[in-house]
Every structure is written in structure tokens, then in C-alpha cells.
Write a protein that binds this DNA or RNA. Structure first.
Lengths: 130, 130
DNA sequence: CCTTGACCTTCCCCTAACTGGAACCCTTAT
DNA sequence: ATAAGGGTTCCAGTTAGGGGAAGGTCAAGG
């Protein structure tokens, strides 16, 4: 399989697939002409990574998850630990964003948004010094 | 004022202040000895930027907001537009994270987290190929 | 006078996870 | 012969700074 087909089937851009090879996630064979020649296992691995990335796992998380995936004698607790850590980080990001959102929404709501210069948003920013 | 004091009073790391000078947000005078010599206006500007950054505005947003701040004849609508755009982006990020969170929390909840290898999380990732 | 420690300076590399683009090769069809 | 549409490598850029080296400056203490 050439990279284009793998891209199509995995949903990952070719660029990303090359990058994943560079960082050691896959090691596709090469054809005579130098083209990468992927097999179904490569494709499967890439899809796994793509799915994990879409759930917020970092590249290093993915590396750990792939290892656990390959290890038939893994403990599900090890997988769960990685996932729970990711969950905590996602929650932290959501909390940060929601705090931002609340303040910002408040300011936006207070701004007339007309042609006059008076603006509670700028006033807030300008009053930033404790 | 030396950079250390500005850092303390603005709450921004010295590194960040130097970076903000580099990208043109401030242009502090220099003392005889080559040290940056900040005045109250610099400090105020830095605090403004710090506050804006903490509300999720990008560096380029900050640049625009500073310009509007300085423009006595601005329309508050222009400020509001920038803020609303930022709000939309924050909302989009929150939505993305919440979708991730929902799926991930579901998987985490389904995983026994014990010493056995069976794991719904890995099963999900392994079934990623559409 | 010398040293010590806390400042300050510039400079360059590093981060995450790719993305874009240039320059070039391979294959197939017209 | 050439044009389109693959593929290849390599280099640079993205965000918003952070880390750390090598070195200049300043005030206090011995």
C-alpha cells in the first residue's frame, strides 16, 4: 500500500504518517522505487494512534498505549491509569477555559458594541494592575 | 525600574517581558549600564497584555486591543468583535474537550482497572479502523 | 581591595505535533 | 514528449515563551 491509500483509509494526512514513521511508530518496508510500502498492521497501528490522539492522548501516551496493546499479559489497571491521567488533564483544561469564558462572556455582555468609544472590556484590561 | 521589579509588579516572568519587547509590545529605555529601564507606562502596558492573555486573547489579539485602547475614537463594537471571536474559539475548544471527555470517561468507567488484561479502552483504540 | 551573590545582558536551542513548501523522482496516460 | 498526479527528502515555520550558558554590573561584607 502506498502512503496515499493509507492516508485515505486511516484518515491521517500523509505528512502525519511520515512524521509517525520518523518518531518510530511504524517502520514500513520500502518498494524498489523508494516508496513506502505499508501493510495492514501498519494501517491498524496508525488507526490506533489516530483514535488515541483524537481522545487527547499525547504522542508519549500513544507510545505507552501501543506497548500495552502489544503486551498480552498487561494489567488493565496500567491502561486505566494512563487514561485517567489524560482525563484529569482534560478536566483541568476545561476548567481553565470555563473560567476564562465566564469572565470574558461577562465583559462581552457589558459592552454596548456600538460606535461609541466607552468599552468595559478595555476598561477591565486597563485596570489590570493590582 | 529594572526588569525584576516590573516582573514582580506585572506578574509576568522576566523572560516574557523580554519577549514582549522583542515582538514590539514595549520599547523601554536603556540605562547607562545597558539595563532596561521601564517606566509606569511600560508596566501598565504589560499588565494590560498579561490580563488579556489570561483571558485567552492571542498575541495578535493583544496587538489589536492595544491599538484600540490607544485610539480615543475607537468604536466599542470593534473591541467587542475581537472579544466575541475569542469567545467563539474558547467555546469551540471547550466543546472539543467535552466530547473527548465524554468518550474517555465512558471508556475509563468500563475498564475494570485490575490485573487482568481485558480492557475496553484498548479494545476501542484497536477497533479504530472504520 | 576583593569577593560573593543577586541582578542584568545577549544568544541560541528547545518545546508539541505537526504543516507548508521547495526541489526532485516515478508512473501512467495522452 | 509531456503533463498530471503520485511519491521522496529536507528545511523552515507555527505558539508563546522556557532553559541555560557565558558574561557584565552593582551593593554589601570581610
Amino acid at each position: 500500500m502506498n502512503i496515499g491509500e493509507v492516508a485515505k483509509r486511516s484518515g491521517l494526512p500523509s505528512k502525519t504518517i511520515r512524521y509517525y514513521e520518523e518518531i518510530g511508530f511504524i517502520t514500513p518496508r520500502r518498494s524498489e522505487n523508494g516508496y513506502r510500502d505499508f501493510d495492514e498492521k501498519d494501517l491498524h497501528r496508525l488507526a490506533f494512534i489516530g483514535r488515541a490522539r483524537s481522545l487527547g492522548f499525547t504522542i508519549e501516551n500513544c507510545r505507552a498505549l501501543l506497548e500495552l496493546y502489544a503486551d498480552q499479559s498487561r494489567a488493565s489497571a496500567d491502561v486505566k491509569r494512563v487514561a485517567e491521567e489524560n482525563l484529569r488533564e482534560i478536566d483541568a483544561k476545561i476548567a481553565d477555559l470555563q473560567a476564562m469564558r465566564a469572565t470574558l462572556a461577562h465583559l462581552v455582555g457589558a459592552c454596548a458594541g456600538d460606535s461609541r468609544p466607552d468599552c468595559p472590556i478595555l476598561e477591565d484590561l486597563g485596570r489590570a494592575l493590582g
